[in-house]
């Protein structure tokens, strides 16, 4: 017993203080990309051609190309930014990515990125301080699950926000889904959703759950959850950083409402 207590003292306290303070992020983290289409050479579509998952469309801005990035499809690999010598398209360290609507997951020059909004009315009153989620893993790579799970560790302590993962849909207020919904999980996803008593929410975590991810278009899966169930929160990434997931969940329950920049991360 004394050994365990001494170990506890030695290991120290590590729960981060988000949202009051943003924990340090890796400097190479590829968060929300930005586009400055004034730097795009005429006729250039190098970024769109480099993208293996067709996440980039090239619109026209006057005579210049204007890339639009669909973060729902984006795997946040550096293929596009590497293909862009003038650095018109680059990734930033901005971790806040979750949106309330599929169409909001678009990054383009001059476009305001609308972060997720809080649930409204009765459902907010019911779940704002206590949200129980059933996590369903359906046809992904277990990568999103890794970072969903991490939120339960003491470094993040999801429970302090009243959010927890529960073992039965009957105990749940909503479903958190990872994976593109394989055909072999389609029925299980539908049944899980039906078994959750209403009112209920659905949260799609990761590129697969939003649009099929690297497997988009495969007949073995459904290209995401939105075709089966109504999705209230889209959290993009492959996988999203745990902070991105937490930020999205806290926006959903109204614990974070600002759309402006959060407090700067401490050095280190």
């Amino acid at each position: 017993m004394i050994t365990a207590l001494l170990a506890r003292l030695r290991q120290g306290h590590h729960t981060n203080r988000f949202p009051a303070q943003v924990p340090p992020l890796p400097d190479r983290l590829r968060g929300r990309p930005v586009v400055d289409s004034t730097l795009c050479p005429p006729g250039c579509r190098a970024c769109a051609d480099a993208c293996a998952v067709d996440a980039i469309a090239i619109g026209a801005d006057g005579g210049r190309p204007a890339p639009r990035i669909d973060l729902g499809k984006c795997l946040f690999c550096p293929d596009c930014s590497e293909a862009c010598p003038p650095k018109a398209l680059r990734f930033t360290n901005e971790f806040r990515l979750a949106t309330s609507a599929r169409g909001d997951l678009e990054v383009a020059d001059g476009r305001v990125y609308a972060l997720g909004r809080a649930l409204a009315g009765r459902i907010r009153r019911l779940y704002g301080r206590s949200l129980k989620l059933r996590v369903v893993s359906a046809g992904g790579c277990n990568g999103c699950e890794v970072d969903v799970n991490v939120l339960g560790t003491l470094a993040w302590d999801l429970g302090r926000f009243g959010i927890s993962y529960v073992a039965s849909p009957r105990h749940a207020d909503g479903m958190l889904i990872c994976g593109g919904v394989s055909r072999n999980m389609e029925l299980a996803v539908r049944k899980t959703w039906e078994a959750i008593p209403g009112p209920k929410v659905c949260i799609a975590v990761g590129a697969c759950a939003i649009a099929g991810g690297p497997f988009a278009g495969h007949p073995e899966q459904c290209d995401g959850a939105a075709g089966l169930v109504p999705v209230d929160l889209f959290i993009p990434g492959c996988p999203p950083h745990p902070l991105t997931i937490l930020d999205g969940l806290l926006r959903l329950i109204g614990r974070i409402e600002d759309q402006a920049a959060p407090p700067a991360p401490p050095a280190g």
């Binding site: 400097d27 190479r28 550096p78 990568g143 991490v150 560790t153 003491l154 470094a155 996988p239």
Partner: peptide, 19 residues
């Protein structure tokens, strides 16, 4: 649970992705 994250963050220090 926490130390695992420290190792994942080392991978992210190399390439930006914890995985």
């Amino acid at each position: 649970g926490r130390i695992r994250g420290d190792f994942l963050n080392l991978s992210a220090a190399v390439c930006g992705s914890r995985l």
